[in-house]
Amino acid sequence: MSTTIFLQALLSGLTNGAIYALVAVGLTLVFGVMRIVNFAHGEFLMLAMYGGYLAFTFLGLDPILAVFLVAPVLMLMGYLLFDGLIRPALKVPEINQMAVTLGLSLLLQYLALVAFKADNLLVTQERSTASIWLGPVLIQMPQAIAALASIILLGLFYLVLRKTDLGLIMRVVSQSRDGAALSGIDISGTYRWAMAIGLGTLGIAGPLMVSALYVNPHVGQLFTLKAFVIVIVGGMGSFGGVLIGALLVGIAESIAASWLTASVAAAVPFALLILVMLLRPEGLVPAGGSR
């Protein structure tokens, strides 16, 4: 492989990785705060992508502006989802929780199929075909915008988590639900906010992604799986771990894609997961994570 091809793969791996990180970070937040894995996470990304597409097609909104419409809608969805589904799901065994969110994932996929059919849709504008040269390698404009927005958002997200009262409360709740309840923290309220922010990040990622990547009803499933891999590779629950995991997955995937068939390359994130499990059996899992 020549250096240029390698650098090109590295760059697109990094841009993809930044976007993956934004998708995975919402999943981690929800899992970290309420210990529930949302198997429908990717389906909300899919909805946000459709949101961006519809805003562009019917309102003529630029995807960057559509973010300001779609993100609040997704936050509201998270807010309502908590009270409608997640709060009751917290009372049933873990395996039933899994069935609930898996059911939601199927439900959203097939509702989308009924509504939008199975067509691949994409926002195409003037800048869609534009690209930027960075030395010997080039980056597509839509990808660049999405990656840049992801980086800004991840920074913001980190600040919220570290510097604000809400962030502090979320960190406390994720460490000890009982301890937080004893110190008078409104657990349900925190959960609701975690859900709203967790899906809200998708509301930002979705519209930006739909000008770089086709949306169809089943696009979310792949992202859910990748986000899971990223979260496990990155150590289950830490913000920094998600970043590292996402970049690793993004780079591994795009380097593999440059010299393997697409289908084999798609297996690379999972192979990476298996590799990490083989090589780091002692680590990455928090010691007290069992109970």
């Binding site: 009751p88 069935a99 609930v100 059911g103 199927l106 439900l107 996929q109 097939y110």
Partner: peptide, 17 residues
């Protein structure tokens, strides 16, 4: 096409809860 899976998924959510 798909509406049967929608029904299936709804049933699954309701019964699991």
């Amino acid at each position: 096409h798909g509406i049967n899976i929608v029904a299936y998924a709804l049933l699954m959510i309701v019964l699991a809860l």
